[in-house]
Design a binder for these strands. Structure first.
Lengths: 337, 337
DNA sequence: AATATGAATGTAAGCGTTTACATTTTTAGA
DNA sequence: TCTAAAAATGTAAACGCTTACATTCATATT
């Protein structure tokens, strides 16, 4: 069943059928109805390949993420998909893992499939080290199609970044904890991703303003499993590091901190405060429930798609969009007076 | 940059270039190398649409899931994507939500994009009620392309189901709990999905074998949020229902049960045992950590993709593949003697 | 050296659309 | 009623590939 079959049944040319399908050219109401009826009746759907060949677009957006089983990224993908589909775009998904070479490979793969744009979900796509040209693969891609980055920032033409103001939110919550009397604040982070660095610098700035100089020493980067994280905290504490407030770069780390506090028999939040990040489901599963920074992912994703649609429409948009976060105060911090 | 450019540079015909690209026909080693060098040098990638048009396949599998932010489904998608990509297939993702009409709509949409097969991730794609023809949309799709169902079963030609043996695993764990002396077992479930029903029947069978007749009364279906679930349990308990063992159809429900136990000041696992399902990250975040049924999702997904590849190769494969689960015993049940 | 055979390569049709341009039909104004 | 302009429709080329079939070239056999 192809466009010729339809045109034959309708007694018109394929051009007319095509025009009805695409709805962008004039067709008399009578023939339009007739053709629509036949399409309906036969269940005809245009061949997407042929269409793509002709138009050189397939209304498809590529999403790259390191690991879509990560709850944060999974949520991001969920929101992206919903938003994009509401604009009639398909989503092709690519989980790259965390290796640079793989990221580049899959980005190129998506490019070769002629996606209309690509979304890099997660700040890990941005190299933060000093390796020169580590972000070239993004620059190259952006020369051909729009590139959207969620929670990362690089200043390149054709790259549009949507990020939560992590620095600000960590700064604020740290200030709050310090003002509540904390003297042993700690920042627990997973890696030096772009957003990790942002958060860290917010933390350090807050410390500095309160007269704590060697903030760097109060930043802990930790590799992996919940157990390891808890163990690391225990080790530091037994080595004499005072800990009465832990700000974490995600909720899972906060759970590690929670376990640490329980093992140290510290009462929460009186003797120790804990703050998570992302307001994930996890934050509701703990005892007590986690105070956490809600970076409004759904809103960020919707904004990103909005922005992308404008770009695809040729409108002028800024290369950077900052989304403000909310602190959700629950059981692991003192109520603010 | 297209195949003509390459053929010109190489001084051969486009057919030869095509043969080199596809590697399925004989080309002399000398020309092959020459062409490969030019492809490498120019960075040429074949146009996927044109290719699709010619082959009527785009090496793309559609994955339908209700909600990819659900941690179980997110993991499933992650594993599917990895496996499929290792076979050089792309994944186009579709989150349908839980409404029947939307599921059908998106399935049709994927069909119209000429995906090579479609994976329905999650038992919620199977109607368990008595509505006649509720699964017709699956039957129709399966007439055109292979349909893989994860954790659901319908007996239809062209439909291949990969499921964990939920009935068996719930039966086993229930028996164990009963043998450990539980007299107030409860099955906590989210809805009457296919796998929900399987689990339920395993529970009831175990009860029956131990002389508990009205097993149905010990099955609780609960709608939604963690709070509501906990509240429901509290209500039942205060209405006099004895509860000393809760088997849950997912880990999140188990967390609700955990909260219930804590509020009732029941000691875990001495006065109450709790069993979750899926062995998700959540199960490690609780205090104590959850005993949970590991349905070996990664293995199931890999098996499903294996099976799919065979189907696409025209090999004969069974329509049902059962994956056995493992009980992971942690802090919420007594160690088995 | 002539021929048969098989390997390597080329030619051209086809895949199902979109769309610029050409043609026909309709409409409106005189 | 005739004509000019506008609207509707048709024709055919293009998109970039795959592949059946045709052709050329190399090799082995006699």
């Amino acid at each position: 069943m192809n466009i010729y079959d339809i045109s034959e049944k309708a007694g018109v040319s394929i051009a007319t059928v095509s025009r009805v399908i695409n709805g962008n050219a004039k067709v008399s109401e009578k023939t339009r109805q007739k053709i629509l009826a036949i399409i309906e009746e036969t269940g005809y759907t245009p061949n997407a390949f042929a269409r793509g060949l002709g138009l050189n677009t397939m209304k498809t957006i590529g999403i790259l993420c390191a690991d879509c089983s990560d709850s944060y990224l999974a949520s991001a993908i969920y929101h992206f998909e919903r938003e994009l589909r509401s604009h009639d775009y398909d989503v092709i998904l690519c989980c790259t893992g965390y290796e640079q070479a793989t990221k580049e490979k899959y980005l190129n793969l998506l490019m070769s499939k002629h996606v209309d744009a690509v979304i890099l979900a997660g700040s890990n796509f941005i190299a933060t080290g000093t390796a020169p040209g580590a972000n070239d693969y993004i620059r190259d891609a952006a020369q051909e199609i729009p590139v959207i980055i969620l929670n990362g920032f690089v200043d390149l033409p054709g790259v549009y970044c949507v990020l939560s103001d992590d620095m600000e939110s960590v700064y604020n919550v740290t200030k709050t904890l310090l003002s509540q009397g904390a003297t042993g604040p700690l920042f627990l982070s997973r890696s030096d991703s772009y957003s990790g660095l942002q958060k860290k610098s917010g933390f350090i700035r807050a410390l500095k303003e309160c007269g704590i100089k060697d903030g760097e020493k109060r930043v802990l980067s930790t590799p992996g499993s919940m157990e390891e994280n808890t163990a690391l905290l225990l080790k530091k504490a037994s080595a004499g590091l005072k800990v009465d407030a832990v700000i974490c770069s995600d909720d899972e780390l906060a759970v590690s901190a929670l376990k640490f506090a329980k093992q140290m028999k510290l009462s929460i939040p009186d003797e120790i405060s804990i703050v998570g990040f992302n307001n994930s489901k996890l934050s509701l599963c703990c005892e007590p429930e986690l105070t956490t920074i809600d970076n409004r992912l759904a809103y960020a994703c919707a904004s990103a798609v909005d922005l992308l649609m404008k770009v695809l429409n040729g409108e002028d948009v800024p290369g950077k969009l900052l989304i403000s976060s909310n602190l959700v105060t629950r059981g692991t911090t003192k109520a603010n007076s």
